[in-house]
């Protein structure tokens, strides 16, 4: 890494470079690739419907189909990216929503790499680690998916039913360890970090109770409500910490 220090030029700190150069590049790449993906994902339909002429299904049914699923999906369309963005970061969210499986794969990977690098997504180091972790997970998942569509039947037949069923618990098991990872991050002890996190955890628990027991019909927004409340508390904590820091560092 000593060589790397010699390559660094200019007077910018990593944080300044991050805000001035890195993040604009992230959005440039993210937006460009999402726009292209938009057209690539709709291209098969356009080709088959308009060019090959497989258009026995009338326009009215196309809209009826969308109308049938939209009420079930609209909550996710609105809330999911906002829920995961504070954990995955901008680059992570652009990658995750193109490659899919956000909750099952990208979220655990982001948490694990951030813990391993002892940082979070708010830092340049956390962004770099998250990008590398998520990109790797995307490639590995595509390889597994490719093998699955080719020889997946043989894999399934080789596994006993109980082993197969146990894979339903892999995300649950990951969440358990991810919570511990979060508590073991940062400067404090496990217990101190747990106590710091209690107000945020209460937001998640409150949101679960709210959407499952108190107000019907808003289940899709539960995670967003929990995260939203926690971010609100985080904002007040930030304002307080900032004021204290500025008072202690009048010359900064």
């Amino acid at each position: 890494m000593a060589d790397n220090k010699e390559i660094k030029t200019g007077a910018m700190t990593p944080e300044e470079d991050y805000l001035a150069n890195f993040m604009p590049s992230v959005h440039k790449i993210g937006r460009f690739t999402i726009i292209v993906a938009f057209f690539l994902s709709i291209a098969p339909f356009i080709y088959l419907y308009f060019i090959k002429g497989y258009n026995d299904v009338p326009f009215s049914m196309l809209f009826a189909g969308v109308a049938a699923v939209a009420p079930m999906l609209i909550g996710g369309w609105i809330s999911e990216p906002l829920t995961y963005w504070p954990i995955l970061g901008s680059a992570g969210i652009y990658m995750s929503y193109l490659a899919g499986n956000v909750m099952a794969m990208r979220f655990p990977v982001a948490t694990a790499v951030q813990k391993n690098a002892n940082t979070d997504i708010s830092t340049p180091k956390g962004q770099v680690a998250t990008i590398i972790g998520i990109a790797t997970s995307i490639v590995i998942n595509l390889v597994i998916l490719f093998i699955t569509v080719l020889v997946g039947g043989a894999i399934l037949n080789a596994m006993p039913p109980k082993v197969l069923h146990s894979f339903n618990y892999c995300i649950v098991g990951m969440i358990g360890s991810m919570v511990l990872m979060r508590f073991s991050m940062g400067k404090g002890t496990l217990v101190q970090n747990f106590l710091d996190a209690v107000p945020y955890m209460c937001c998640g628990i409150f949101a679960y109770i709210l959407v499952n027991f108190l107000v019907k019909g808003i289940t899709m927004y539960g995670a967003l409500i929990g995260v939203g409340l926690a971010v609100l508390i985080a904002y007040f904590k930030y304002k307080k910490a900032r004021a204290e820091w500025e008072a202690a560092n009048p010359d900064a």
Binding site: P86, I87, S122, I175, M178, Y200, M201, C203, A207, G226
Partner: peptide
Amino acid sequence: FMGMAAPMALM
């Protein structure tokens, strides 16, 4: 602060 708050509410 947000990076800490969001996952601790979501999990």
